[in-house]
Nucleic acid binder design. Sequence first.
DNA 1: ACTCCCTGGTTCAACTTTTAAGCAATTACT
DNA 2: AGTAATTGCTTAAAAGTTGAACCAGGGAGT
Lengths: 171, 171
Amino acid sequence: MTTRWLTAEEQRAWRAYLAASLLLEDVIDRQLQQEAGMPHLYYSVLATLSEAPDRRLRMTDLAEALKITRSRLTYAVTRLEKDGAVRREGCPSDRRGSVAVLTDEGATVLERTAPGHAETVRAAVFDHLTPEQVGDLERICAGIAEAIQGDGRQAVRADELPWRRRSCPSG
Amino acid sequence: MTTRWLTAEEQRAWRAYLAASLLLEDVIDRQLQQEAGMPHLYYSVLATLSEAPDRRLRMTDLAEALKITRSRLTYAVTRLEKDGAVRREGCPSDRRGSVAVLTDEGATVLERTAPGHAETVRAAVFDHLTPEQVGDLERICAGIAEAIQGDGRQAVRADELPWRRRSCPSG
DNA sequence: ACTCCCTGGTTCAACTTTTAAGCAATTACT
DNA sequence: AGTAATTGCTTAAAAGTTGAACCAGGGAGT
């Protein structure tokens, strides 16, 4: 097949996306590094745990929720554990497994820093979007995620090719 | 001010965005690592140079175009120089300056790998967006970039607070 | 020319991420 | 039960990134 290049409009959109995503990651990482002493991803680990039943999640489920590799998560949790924000527990139902648990200290960090984070996201993103655009953004991004994940045909992640589900957390 | 949290719709959009951007970066990095032997950002360095007049750009201009810090660019160019894809030249009009130049070898790598990259971006992003959505995406992202950059008030980049312009390349 | 400050770019040390192994527990199969 | 393949998670080594510090060159004011 002769290469299907991007159209001019697609190129403009793609470049705008690349610029925005780099700038955004930068601003958010910096803000959280300042206020919470950790990069955005690590904050997301805490945030995700805080919403999980019993504030705990299997490592693999957490990685899946965050869309990152297990390896990356292992390092993140190790660091957060050193900080006292997270604790690891063995999984009773599967002796291989381990469960990340948000500590009270971690919850406190989250509570303290969530407002600043929300403010940053709002200032960078939502304060200048119309409600329709918010909906558009969600649909567009959901479509992208879907296109990438619902893609059993080819190796998409090096780590763990198809996306699977596990369980165990509070039992 | 009592924290302006994100609305439910905004949260959904934000989470969809985070997931999509992580997955997307992952897929693209992996594809380019495979085909071009370099991460996406490094490919972007080559791509940006290839479109610049005389295939050359001052380091700071290149960093600005790519929305990355000069430090990060220094490392990228050093690596690409080792690969032979880029060459550094002194800037005649400012002895402090250096200019990154795309070599023929770099141009060849780009030509060879651009189709695969385009295909990946298309498959992950544009193949399932309507033309309206492409426009929406561009406008939304442009707005985000604008909100972050057009922000002289606060330190947005650690490196170089306000965004400026330079020149010199082919003169 | 002399100061003082700014700018362009690089470098260092600390940190994060990646990829490919690696290991132990579990499952599937016989 | 016995064994091979799979799964859950960690680790090692290499690569990339960050933020601060650094240095030489350029500019403005005197």
